[in-house]
């Protein structure tokens, strides 16, 4: 029996599954940040990244039976709120100047 099937037969779920889900989410968020041109979607991708990290923290907390990971998650949620507020304010600023939220429209600075 492959390890995957072996682990399926147990009742509880192994740590690595949670980590795999978190890494897939992180990859999705990274792809969003790198490829999407809409600043709002980029900000949402950053939120996906933070959620993926939170999932790993909680999985590791459960693994170590130690609540430090919960505390970090708590702080990450607060930081995400702060980042979202500033990020959205910046999107409004960009929109005021360019009438567009497209990252490609930001051409005042030479690349």
């Amino acid at each position: 029996m492959t390890p995957l099937l072996a682990s399926m037969s147990q009742t509880a779920i192994p740590l690595s599954w949670y980590l795999a889900v978190a890494l897939i989410l992180f990859a999705i968020g990274t792809i969003g940040v790198l490829t999407r041109r809409n600043a709002l979607v980029v900000l949402m991708s950053v939120e996906i990244l933070l959620n993926a990290v939170n999932l790993t923290f909680l999985a590791f907390a459960r693994h170590h039976d130690n609540m430090d990971g919960h505390v970090v998650t708590f702080f990450v949620i607060a930081v995400a709120a702060a980042e979202a507020a500033v990020g959205l304010a910046l999107v409004l600023g960009i929109f005021r100047h360019n009438r567009s939220v497209n990252v490609d429209s930001m051409t005042a600075l030479r690349n």
Binding site: P3, L4, A6, S7, Q10, T11, A12, I13, P14, L15, S16, L19, A20, L23, I24, F26, A27, T30, R62, H63, D65
Partner: peptide
Amino acid sequence: AVKAIMVVSSATGSKALM
């Protein structure tokens, strides 16, 4: 991501959480 998942799952094994 695929590489990281493979490394991580082989590192943490398939032991269920207690």
